[in-house]
Amino acid sequence: MDRFAKRALVDLVMRSACTLATALALAPLVSVLAYVGAQGLGGLSWGFFTELPAPVGESGGGVGNALLGSLVLLGLAGCFAIPIGVLAGVYLAEFGIGPFGRLARFCADVATGVPSIIVGVFVYSLVVLSMRRFSALAGGLALGILMLPTITRTTEEILRLVPDSLREAGLALGVPERRVILRIVVPTAAPGVATAVTLALARAAGETAPLLFTALNSRFWSTRLDQPIGSLPVQLYSYALSPYEPWHRQAWATALVLVALVLTLNLGVRALTASRKELR
């Protein structure tokens, strides 16, 4: 074999290896989605979304309270993380080139890597111990802390994409800097920020570890913020680890709801931003 043929062969082999690797990487995704779909679909019914979990031995039952609980927790987390995260992102993008900005940016980056279980322990010792009870508030705070660094950094990145010419145009019209930022820069970036926030919420929706000892779980309807509250991931976890076969089916159905929720949010947001880009 001459040198060129050999080189072409190596090229071909390595390209195939990369393609194979991608197939290998996607195989588990297919398997997970297939199982969740196949096993979960049978457990779905209208009642699954509206009813309370059934006790052992009874058939039926649902995750209505957990669904509601997840919404409550995400709402709380959003109330906490979105305003702080977006304004922190504004600081980093508009003023954050000094040493403090670099520190804050670095901490936000590092904070995205803090294990979610640690956040749970932190909120437990901060909130649960002082309130002397597990509560939705603690759970929401834990999810919010998890979302905060992501929202901060993505907001910063998106604000940086707003051309400086718009900032200068605003300043040149004699508009004070804060209003240039709040009324021109932020609205221009708003769709992107909304996307980032939605993705962060989607990620938080699936978090289990930080809720285990903050929001705990509940088998009853509850929207009270000072009481334990159920959530889809924690309900799924407790169903999955139970020794009862019917509960395993409930676990798969819960997983299907959760995956559908997370993927819909992800795909929906991506589709929206993609179509907006094409319009431009």
């Binding site: 990487a25 996607l26 588990p28 995704l29 997970v32 969740v36 993705l199 989607a202 990620r203 929706a205 699936g206 978090e207 289990t208 570890a209 991931p233 799924l236 976890y237 999955a240 676990a251 798969w252 997983a255 959760l258 995956v259 997370v262 993927l263 992800n266 795909l267």
Partner: peptide
Amino acid sequence: LLAAIPSVVYGL
């Protein structure tokens, strides 16, 4: 998208 699937689902 693979990264978006909740870890508890991978656990299941």
